[in-house]
């Protein structure tokens, strides 16, 4: 995984995923820097908006494939 930042593009390596206080915590390394990403229920609307387009496209694609297979 890569992350673009003001100091350039850096590699992000995931070291582990866990649950803490109702949050999904992704721990990893951004280059040599220890990093963590926390995702909670309050982030779901934002994630829903961000992934709406790709999810709709994926849904339509799958529906299309299913229709073609039925024929």
């Amino acid at each position: 995984m890569k992350v673009t930042s003001p100091i350039g593009e850096l590699p992000f390596v995931v070291r582990g995923v866990s649950l803490h206080d109702g949050h999904v915590v992704v721990e990893g390394e951004l280059g040599a820097w220890r990093s963590r990403i926390e995702v909670g229920a309050e982030d779901l609307p934002m994630l829903g908006r961000a992934f709406r387009g790709p999810l709709i496209a994926a849904g339509l694609g799958l529906a299309g494939i299913a229709l073609l297979r039925r024929r």
Binding site: I7, G8, L10, P11, L30, G31, A32, W33
Partner: peptide
């Protein structure tokens, strides 16, 4: 100071 090696040449 950058968390990857390579400097301007890139990691």
């Amino acid at each position: 100071r950058i968390p990857v090696p390579g400097g301007v040449h890139g990691w």
